[in-house]
Amino acid sequence: MNRDNSLAVLVLIAVIIFVPLVSGSAYVITIGVFSGINALIAIGLCILMGYAGQVSLGQAGFYGIGAYVSATLTHHYGLPVPLCVAAAMIVSAFAAVILAVPSLRLKGHYLAVATLSFGEIINIALNEWGPGGPSGFGDIPTFNILDFIFDTTTSYFYLVWGCVVLVLLFSFNFINSRTGRALRALHGSELASRAMGLDVTALKIKVFVISAAYASLAGSLYAHYVTFISPSSFTLFYSILVLMMVVIGGITNLWGGVVGAILITILPELLRSFEEFDVLVYGLILTLSLMFLRRGLVPLLIEKIKQLRGPLIARD
């Protein structure tokens, strides 16, 4: 991990600690919880798109598996929550392999359609066979580790954002190592990658698995927070929303996922004052940012900071 990213993680940790201290409002912290959940899934999609050059419109499928598997296991069988969250990640990982093996032969639009279909199949399956069918089920236990129950919004905020920090550290670690270099190489030239002995297919499958595991973790954290889930939370609409987050934040940088997730989560809340026009304004803002922020917010900011830093260094 390079110095700038370490510094950024420290800043993030400081912000995480201070937000609940400064803001007494449960409303703000709740939005913070959802931002964190969305950040987890967005980081996974960032890695998939920005570093491996693959697209997915099926992240809601893994998000749904994460939510349903750990909710069902804890609710019906009374197993410890962390164990069930891990089990859900493993189930999602298997689902990712099954999806990846046939669809990674596909490129661009075809891959998008294949992953989209996967998400829809999961959604149909949840409607048909999920506990409670289309109306879902409740009484899902709150997240707890042994005796400690995360039953306040603030404690859940720390839990979720703690996970975001760990996932970021884990991700930065493997991106700045053999496997991460291989992913970027793959993105740069598949021909040269093959000639250098990179196992291209295996790498692509593994990235898919990682993005699925992150989405699954996000889904589990969601289920154990709201304690009631139904298939309507795990639709194509959500997959597209996650795509929006990473595109607006910037796919070439993991921080893009985090920033995009926060913005997209907060935006509808800020637009409340527009009342019945909020959907319209929301759509307008998304469209404009997609048009004018081609590379995403974070890469743009980094460029601006470098430009500002440049003359400073030159002056010294």
Partner: peptide
Amino acid sequence: MVGRYSRTRSGFISSG
């Protein structure tokens, strides 16, 4: 360094 790929073995999880 990418050229070293086939002569090394750290994976995603061990690197993470």
